[in-house]
Nucleic acid binder design. Structure first.
Length: 293
DNA sequence: AATGAGCGA
């Protein structure tokens, strides 16, 4: 590579400084007012013009309004709260929640002596390893071996068998402690799992709720899972909301899924919400085809 | 226009 010595030496760094020192520090600071409830934002800046006179520049702009149609009154009210902490300098419309770095320790209630569980499980694994290599995959819910993990169990969304969790009197106590790790007076048992609690496992309830999965497409890119939940929950209890995110850009891919506990609710949501105008787009809401394994 | 992330005894 050759250097062109005939060209004037580049002094780009000096280009804007030909008329003397920078006196900007003498000017009042920039002010930002708003945006107000109409999305109007005003920026006031001061500058020196070419003649060296101080001038004031007011810029008025309209901030894109957030989609509020679907929000509850309370939610709108919350959005108007003054920001605090690390979010103080965040713009309206940018992310409204912050990730906390605070470490929170959660104490799990566990009866004394129930650590027998770990010893037992560890022992099982050792036995497996001794017998022939890989750790065996055993489903905790249905007990099937080598087929799926607990989270993939076809029955994972079904009510847990009550017996596993409820305290039983003396006789079977030790066995229970070993299998469930829940024993003793100090272990909390939620009312729904106490002995005599009504069991809601009628044949229809037994179906896994992945089936009641609704696909929502044509979402505006700033629709978040919380927004979808807000929109769909009016039809019945929602077990999961998911918005597809582009891993590269971190932006919404414009579609998502909503799972309902009850099929009928999902159906009503589809009927009501398909073609519904939402945040300036027309939603497409229909049954989702089950996810590939 | 478009059918989801990640984890593990």
């Amino acid at each position: 590579m050759t250097l062109d010595v005939s060209a004037p030496r580049m002094r780009w760094g000096e280009l804007e400084e030909d008329d003397g020192e920078d006196l900007d520090f003498l000017l009042p600071p920039k002010q930002v007012i708003g945006p107000d409830e109409n999305g109007i934002k005003r920026v006031i800046e001061y500058k020196f013009d070419d003649a060296g006179n101080k001038i004031k520049i007011t810029t008025t702009s309209r901030v894109r309004k957030l989609a509020k149609a679907h929000l509850s009154k309370r939610a709108i009210e919350r959005r108007n709260w003054p920001k605090f902490g690390d979010a103080v300098h965040e713009d309206v419309g940018s992310r409204l929640t912050m990730v906390s770095t605070e470490e929170i320790l959660i104490e799990r209630p566990r009866a004394p002596g129930s650590n027998q569980e770990e010893t037992k499980v560890a022992g099982d694994n050792l036995a497996q390893l001794g017998k022939g290599g890989a750790v065996l995959m055993v489903c905790r819910t249905c007990g099937k071996k080598g087929d799926h993990w607990t989270s993939r169990c076809p029955y994972k969304d079904l009510a847990q068998p009550t017996e596993t969790f409820v305290e039983k009197p003396a006789a079977s106590e030790t066995a229970l402690a070993a299998s469930a790790g829940a024993k003793g007076a100090s272990t909390y048992v939620p009312p729904s799992m106490r002995a005599g609690a009504e069991r809601t496992v009628g044949s229809d309830m037994r179906r896994r709720n992945e089936e009641n999965s609704v696909r929502v497409t044509n979402l505006s890119e700033d629709t978040r899972e919380a927004d979808l939940h807000e929109l769909f929950r009016t039809f019945g209890s929602v077990s999961r909301v998911y918005v597809a995110i582009d891993q590269k850009t971190g932006m919404s891919r414009g579609f998502g899924f909503v799972n309902f506990v009850n099929k009928e609710d999902a159906e009503r949501a589809i009927n009501k919400l398909n073609g519904y105008g939402y945040d300036n787009l027309i939603l497409r809401v229909e049954w989702a085809t089950p996810r590939a394994s």
